[in-house]
Amino acid sequence: MSIQNTNTRTTVLILMVVAAIAMRIVNTQVPALSNFTPVGAVAIFGGAYFTDKWKAYLVPLLLLLISDVAVNYMYAGKFTFYSSSLYMYGCFMLMTFVGTFIKKVTVLNVAAASIVAVLIHWLVMDLPFVYGIANTWANYGTLLVKAIYPFETNMLIADAIYGAILFGGFELAKSKYTALQGKKQLAL
């Protein structure tokens, strides 16, 4: 793949991620859409498509940070970094890692990655010590149950919808524009 094709592919991937992350800011304006954000799908998408793995991690995390700043300014008028933020960013790095295992984009592979991503978020973000609560199994169980609806349910639905848009859109674009195809596809 030529340098120009690589740059075109990377630019398109970044623009798709930017557009998806922008929806996170829109979704914060509707309380019913709590956790209905594209960040899980974006992390999986980045892991699956960026050929340079450092970009797969950096682009989604950087855009997540930028959207955090925007969301915080909209609600609090300032940027606030919470102790739980490190765990959240860690979750999205793990979700990106899950995306790296997608070697062939199919509905089943993307759906499985989305379910794993939501499970990662659910199991990590509801650990009691993340929020300074006593670290007991009872507290963990309570937090897990409370998070199922609306938070994790919305995240699963959002990952499915945004994943379909991102993966489906890029696969469609790849079929029309050879500059977007990866090395393996061009060699066939």
Rank of each mutant, 00 (worst) to 15 (best):
S2A: 09
Q4T: 13
G141E: 08
V42F: 03
F167D: 01
V18K: 10
V39Y: 02
L33C: 11
A76T: 08
Y73K: 13
Y149R: 07
A117V: 05
L180N: 08
G77S: 06
L143A: 15
Y140I: 10
L156R: 01
P150L: 05
K104R: 08
M74H: 15
T96N: 05
N135E: 11
V130P: 02
M155Y: 12
N35A: 14
L108A: 15
I133F: 06
T8A: 11
V107R: 05
E171V: 05
T10A: 13
A111H: 00
M23K: 03
V42D: 00
Y140H: 14
G141K: 10
H121V: 14
Q181G: 05
M93Q: 08
T51L: 07
F81E: 00
Y49E: 02
T80M: 12
L15G: 09
N27G: 10
P128I: 09
I157T: 07
S34K: 12
T153H: 08
I21L: 10
L33I: 07
M125K: 01
W122A: 11
T10Q: 14
R24H: 05
A19I: 05
H121C: 13
I3K: 14
Y75A: 13
A117I: 05
A134L: 13
I157L: 15
P128H: 11
P38Q: 10
L64D: 01
T8H: 09
A48N: 03
M74L: 08
I44S: 01
V118H: 02
V59W: 00
M95P: 01
I21H: 01
T178N: 14
V98C: 10
A43D: 07
S67Y: 03
V59K: 01
M23A: 07
T37K: 15
A111Q: 03
T6D: 08
G132K: 11
C91N: 12
G90R: 02
W137E: 10
A164T: 13
I120S: 06
A187G: 09
G47N: 09
N109P: 03
I44Y: 00
F45A: 12
Y177P: 04
F129M: 14
A113Y: 00
I66R: 02
A112I: 14
I161M: 13
V116I: 14
F50A: 12
T136C: 08
F151L: 15
L63F: 13
E171I: 09
A32I: 06
F170P: 04
M74C: 10
L143R: 13
A20C: 03
Q181I: 05
L180H: 08
L64E: 01
I161G: 06
L58D: 13
T8C: 03
V98F: 10
T106S: 15
V17W: 01
A32C: 06
P31H: 08
K146N: 12
A56C: 12
A113K: 00
V18Y: 02
W54G: 05
I102D: 07
F170H: 12
L13H: 03
R9G: 04
G168T: 13
I161T: 14
I66K: 01
I44Q: 00
L119W: 06
I21S: 04
V110F: 00
A134Y: 01
